[in-house]
Amino acid sequence: MKKALMMFALSAVALCSATLTALAGGPGSPANTPPSAPSTKYYEVRIYYPTPGKYEAIVDRFRQYTTKIFEKHGMENIGYWTPTDTSRKELIYILAYPSKAARDTSWKHFGADPEWKAVVAKTEANGKLVDHVTSIFMTESELSPVVKPSKQSPPRTFELRTYSTHPGKMPDLIARFRDHTRALFTKHGMTNIAYWMTQPKNADEQPQLLYILAHPSEAAGKQHFDEFRKDPVWEKVKADSEKNGPITTKVESVYMKPTDYSPMQ
């Protein structure tokens, strides 16, 4: 009996210690736990620029028709957003496919679908809705949590960030995020949603790190980033990682609000 009580007491101490370590952001904390192997899915960011006066119409067409027809053809809806800067008339969304070949096949079948053709005829009776589309192809980074639908009420504000690096510096950037940055984001109230590596279209282009964070609001996101940048731990990490020169050449940020039909909110 005494031996059993002793084993129970030791187990309780170990559990308590592990819990405290996690809360402190130590090695066993969720922020520092290495993610599982990245998915082999093929991803695509698509940015739609509507024709003048057609912004609401294109957003609504996705709400009523497009997302459902995507699913019909094996495309996975990841998220749909519009910039918080209302002067930017853009619809930004991300799809996932089993592979690049599957992506090409799905779009071919989608474009030829009579249901989709009927939707286009109906919604564009008074003119085209889309002026042009930008596509960015990606694969999951080793940094990424599992990419899956997640909703909160009220909906969160999302931030799409894109990092370009000096030649040969991408491994340094990945290491900095893996060993430090993600955990510091969590420490300062930011949620790591997903991380991807872009797939350059031309041989002379370098891949970029593209990722999404979630914030309670745009104001909170900006405040948390200011606190992150002033964190002495981050200041040391940045200085140590850039002893041989800067890592990034450009960082782009877009704050976004999810549409009401986005799987991520």
Score class of each variant (00 low, 15 high):
3 K>A: 11
4 A>F: 14
5 L>F: 08
15 L>G: 13
24 A>Q: 04
29 S>V: 07
30 P>D: 05
37 A>F: 10
42 Y>G: 01
45 V>I: 15
52 P>H: 06
57 A>P: 10
60 D>R: 04
63 R>K: 14
69 I>N: 08
70 F>D: 00
70 F>E: 09
71 E>R: 10
76 E>C: 06
81 W>N: 09
83 P>F: 08
83 P>G: 05
88 R>K: 15
88 R>N: 14
95 L>G: 02
98 P>S: 05
98 P>D: 01
103 R>K: 14
104 D>M: 05
106 S>R: 07
108 K>I: 09
109 H>Q: 09
119 V>F: 01
126 N>A: 10
132 H>N: 15
138 M>C: 03
138 M>V: 03
139 T>Y: 12
142 E>W: 05
146 V>K: 06
149 P>R: 02
150 S>C: 09
152 Q>W: 05
156 R>T: 10
157 T>D: 01
160 L>V: 09
164 S>A: 14
168 G>Y: 00
170 M>Q: 07
175 A>V: 04
175 A>W: 02
176 R>C: 00
176 R>L: 00
178 R>D: 08
179 D>P: 09
187 K>G: 06
187 K>T: 10
188 H>V: 03
191 T>K: 15
192 N>A: 04
193 I>E: 03
198 T>D: 07
198 T>N: 04
200 P>E: 03
211 Y>R: 00
216 P>T: 06
217 S>G: 07
219 A>S: 11
229 R>Y: 14
229 R>N: 14
230 K>L: 08
230 K>T: 14
232 P>Q: 07
233 V>A: 15
234 W>A: 05
249 T>N: 08
250 K>M: 08
250 K>V: 06
250 K>W: 06
251 V>N: 11
251 V>P: 12
251 V>Y: 12
252 E>D: 13
252 E>H: 12
253 S>F: 12
253 S>R: 10
258 P>S: 04
260 D>C: 04
261 Y>L: 07
261 Y>T: 05
261 Y>M: 03
264 M>Q: 10
265 Q>C: 03
